[in-house]
Design a protein around this nucleic acid. Structure first.
Lengths: 241, 241
DNA sequence: CATGAGGGATTGTTGAACAATCCGTCAATA
DNA sequence: TATTGACGGATTGTTCAACAATCCCTCATG
């Protein structure tokens, strides 16, 4: 049975589990397993098995499940248990709709503040995380470290959302990206997927730095449209097999 | 053909069926108490007292607390308990920043779809909930039912967010408005606050209906700026006493 | 006045228990 | 054969009681 294989993997995480809220740390472990693709969508998470593997009680585990349920990484079916979320094509469309609103909105809000008279220094400071993420991605690509290219891409979009300077926008973006990672794993080569958009990231950064914020916003919108289409295509293809 | 319509109809009933969860119902009760102002911000919620009052066990109550914690209505301090959230001025600013992005973004997304060739009928259908909310507010004001004016105003903004046709945007807007209700109660006359913006709602509706979406968006932005300033003013005043 | 040591109260977590519910199996029936 | 209905094992939903960990208040001491 394949279930025991990742249960053993979970058991290995057990020692690193010693401080702060138990349920929170259990949630961290499971979240990592899910977003990294070790727990496939649709997998049912047995309270008894996982509780035994991690050495926590059912009640504590349930709190962790509830946490991840609210982050939409797990779905909870009454009297049936919790399952790793399976995204539908509609979910992917919805996620990209939200991305368009959050990311383009963040750029737009930053633009308004810049026009309202923020200094050049302040603007450069605000843009620094975006620049770092772009360079991180290019460096990783040069070293052919494809996994790092993917995380750098995540950092880029998180940094763009952070331009709104709103904790809630950043948090929403974080949850959104975590949810999206559920669907990246259905593709054959998720690395190539992210790689293709590195030049776009650089373009957006340069437009932002140059103050051409309308152009940055529309490039971002086009980027999201293209990525959505490509992802849905790969998704539908994987659905057939 | 007829079979699928049956099935779709049943599918719509599905969420109402699984609603037997005790913790969920406990959360509903507490959420109502909080948003209606019966539980003041800062109040500590004792597990034992509330569990006894509602006749549920501590474990079940804890699940309800986690639920509301994720909706940001409660804050959970480790080893200290849960408290009704106290919003700061920064929180209010952040909430309005998010509102600007979500509501203006929803209008903008709807506008793009309309320009991309959606029919007049489809557009009127999409706008119907917004119109209903506006009329609901005006009718309540005519009857001098101020509480209903407030809820109608909530419905209006929820309906505007729904223009994005995105479940996640709608849910985020719902959480946002619930959180905002925490701060409405610090004002002397929350009724008058909502009343003042009824004409604005009507204006935005008419602009949307006329297809002048850029104007609608900028009126909305101005509305949010004004409401934010007024709310922060009242908030700072209440803070002094 | 500051400081540190009890002590009571509350939360964090566990384990067990029982009821409710789901799911697969299998026999009965048309 | 296909459908129905009943049975039983397995899993979840919920509660309860207990103990450890932590916080907060009080009070004695310097």
């Amino acid at each position: 049975m394949t279930t025991t294989s990742w249960l053993d993997g979970l058991r290995a995480e057990r020692p690193g589990l010693g401080r702060a809220s138990t349920s929170g740390r259990v949630a961290d472990v499971l979240r990592a397993r899910i977003t990294e693709g070790h727990l496939r969508p649709g997998t049912r998470l047995s309270e008894e098995d996982i509780g035994a593997a991690l050495g926590v009680s059912r009640n504590t585990l349930r709190e962790a499940f509830r946490l991840l349920g609210h982050e939409r990484l797990l779905v909870h079916e009454f009297n049936r248990g919790v399952f790793v979320r399976e995204l539908t094509v509609d979910d992917v469309r919805d996620l990209y709709q939200l991305r368009r609103i959050l990311e383009c909105g963040a750029v737009r809000r930053a633009a308004e503040r810049r026009r309202a008279g923020s200094s050049d220094d302040r603007w450069a400071e605000l843009l620094a995380p975006v620049r770092e993420a772009v360079e991180e991605g290019e460096a990783a690509a040069a070293r052919e470290q494809w996994v790092e290219v993917g995380t750098a891409n995540m950092h880029f979009h998180q940094a763009v959302a952070a331009l709104a300077q709103s904790p809630r926008v950043s948090e929403a973006m974080g949850h959104l990206l975590a949810e999206l990672r559920l669907v990246f794993h259905v593709m054959d080569a998720p690395q190539a997927f992210h790689l293709a958009y590195l030049p776009e990231n650089r373009t957006i950064l340069e437009l932002l730095a140059a103050g051409d914020l309308d152009a940055a916003e529309s490039v971002m919108a086009a980027y999201l449209d293209a990525a959505e289409a490509q992802l849905i295509g790969a998704f539908a293809a994987a659905r057939e097999s």
